[in-house]
Amino acid sequence: MAAHMTNAHRRFLQVLMSNRITEGSEARKLHQHCCETDKVYYAHDKLDDFISTINSHLQPLFMQIRKGISEDDGRAHYAVVNLAETEVTKMASDYTEMELELFRKTMDLIILSENGFASSTDILNLADQLKTKKMKKKEAEQVLKVFVEDKWLSEKNGEYTLHTRCIIEMEQYILSYYQDLAKKCNLCHSLAIQSQVCESCGIGMHLPCARKYFRGQTEPRCPKCNEFWSCDTPGVNRMGSQT
């Protein structure tokens, strides 16, 4: 087994667990804080090693601290995730069976949508079609609010998409469950819920990936078919736009 756990590792894990999702710079600060509190050797560039020590101890428990990239701003985030699906993990008590069914139906809508969003109207229309038990619209609204609070979904102007926390934990599950219906980013090859899609060949890219790729190009072209990239990529100065 790899390096041993210190109180700093345990403290870091405890906070990460209760944070649900932790932004990269916050995790780096927390790393320093934990090492200082528990008087453990600290090196600012050793966060990944620090985490892999914890992960080596979490592995037999089918848990992991996993890193993922936000589809909105491209920043790294960390979350403690569960990797197992067993009779024990099914005992989770956070949501009722009916709430979980609504979540999965919502996930269907989001993943099968063009842009990675599902409108609240469409989701609420599912509420009275649940197999487990019909849900009133008001009830469903409340449940959606909880999913947003718990960071499984995020909401923008009445449209819902998967939160980065959800993508970090469920990427493998989504890719295998939805197979070729789940889109992948043409640049980083990971799951893409919200993506920009090429009008001529249909490939998709994460917004932050596209932004990076098109940086410095005056006339963005699709990396696959070389057609003019018609989606507006905020953060990229293109021809004709103000500089």
């Binding site: 667990m17 848990m63 990797l83 197992a84 993990t89 099914k90 979980l100």
Partner: peptide, 9 residues
């Protein structure tokens, strides 16, 4: 500890 993956019944 809370999770979504693995809780679907």
């Amino acid at each position: 500890f809370h999770y979504m993956m693995g809780s679907f019944k």
